[in-house]
Design a binder for these strands. Sequence first.
DNA 1: GCCAACGTTGGC
DNA 2: GCCAACGTTGGC
Length: 156
Amino acid sequence: MTEPNYWIMKSEPDAYSIDDLKEEKETLWDGIRNYQARNFMRSMNVGDIAFFYHSNCKPPGIVGLMQVIETKLTDPTQFDNQSKYFDQKSSLENPRWDCAKLKYLGEFGEKLSLKEMSDNFTAEELLLLRKGNRLSIIPVKENIAKRLYNLLGSVK
DNA sequence: GCCAACGTTGGC
DNA sequence: GCCAACGTTGGC
């Protein structure tokens, strides 16, 4: 077994929160409509670890941990014209968007807020962790993941 | 509401 | 391919 890759995956808790995932146990991470984020998701492997980040809330920060359990799945919402993620330019023969399936691993005792992250990482590292706000999926190097673990403690 | 830091679109 | 205009994300 090779070492897992680490990721930060963002979601607005109003749309989908760690509590939702805890209840469902696993979820299809669909609705990604940014090519760079999609490509990151395509490079995920089963067994990879993802930090669940709550965005657009007070305070924003990392709240829990997930694991990739399935990859290279077609995102069904692109074909659903009732969905806000419907993509007219995508076709069944040549789907444009795909997604991964994630399972719940646990919740951290305390949220690691963006403020605390900025206190513990250099500006350059923080930029990598946030990608200028725009990406909902971000790769995390192993040494950074270890430091996040140290700040977060273990999941419950 | 403001702003930074992008991505996307479309005319040329 | 260039570039202006516009859209999006998300913190503050």
